[in-house]
Design a protein around this nucleic acid. Structure first.
Length: 262
DNA sequence: GATGACCTGTGA
DNA sequence: TCACAGGTCATC
């Protein structure tokens, strides 16, 4: 699923509905889903008895703080993950992923002392759960990205601009759809070498990242961009009607306008 | 850095 | 049956 906007929706849901509740038990039926040495037994040992005190996010990574010196619970939604609290999901509908609620897709569940629960539902199992994640492996959150930061990042990379924007160690939170939308808004082709952007293009890109996050956030998610409807083979640029180009950049399917994105 | 691997569901 | 999917990681 989920790029920054959907993860933020999940964070808000957790903040509103799970913070302050005490964890009574943990269901971790999928050992493969637990990362960095975490085991089902380890999760059952570390979490029950603690209450959730805060829900934080950096890029696409969620951090749930717990009280009384409990661990930080790291949740990642992968490609198809959703946070479900008391059977209510955040961030729907999800494109390219099933929105059905199948109990077998609940890869990790916190059962609260009050009888409710928080589950991570993930058909494709590409998400992850870990304890005390390293928060510094991620770069600046895309919502906080300043122009000087963006300038420094693009200047020293000869990778395609799209690859730089998607590199979570540099800028955290942007995924395939948001990046295509931001590049389209900025008039920059995804395969442009990042270091080749001039000062005006750097400004345009910074603005477009901000406007993309703000606008699509208001509309309800990464799938609400102007480019999304045209994101099909044979689609036309919503701005000038030019047939879009479809290609692979930075290993991901990309769409862009060959006329106004240069 | 580009590529393939990871895993599973959906729709043509 | 095949191609494809809003992510990340190891490997060449």
């Amino acid at each position: 699923m989920p790029e920054l906007l959907e993860v933020e929706q999940a964070r808000v849901l957790i903040a509103e509905r799970a913070v302050g509740r005490e964890i009574a038990a943990v269901d971790a039926p999928d050992r493969w889903y637990l990362k960095r040495g975490l085991t089902p037994r380890g999760a059952r040992t570390a979490l029950p008895g603690h209450s959730i005190t805060d829900a934080r996010r950096r890029g696409k990574q969620l951090f749930l703080d717990t009280d009384r010196a409990g661990p930080v619970l790291g949740l990642h939604l992968g490609m198809s993950g959703r946070v479900v609290i008391d059977d209510e999901a955040a961030g729907d509908p999800l494109l390219y992923a099933s929105n059905r609620d199948v109990r077998a897709w609940h890869r990790f569940t916190l059962r609260f002392a009050d009888g409710g629960r928080l589950a991570l539902r993930d058909p494709r199992r590409l998400g992850a759960v870990e304890l005390d994640p390293d928060e510094d492996r991620l770069g600046v959150d895309a919502l906080e990205l300043t122009l000087p930061q963006l300038r420094a990042i693009v200047t020293r990379s000869r990778a395609p601009t799209k690859a730089v924007l998607m590199n979570q160690a540099r800028i955290a939170g942007l995924g395939n759809l948001l990046v295509d939308e931001a590049l389209w808004r900025a008039g920059i082709a995804p395969d442009r070498t990042a270091s080749s952007l001039d000062a005006a293009e750097q400004v345009a890109l910074h603005r477009s990242v901000r406007s993309t996050l703000r606008t699509l956030g208001r509309r309800g998610g990464s799938h609400t961009g102007d480019l999304i409807a045209a994101r099909v083979p044979g689609g036309a640029c919503p701005r000038d009607g030019t047939p879009l180009v479809r290609g692979t950049v930075a290993g991901r399917t990309s769409y862009w306008c060959p006329r106004h994105q240069v």
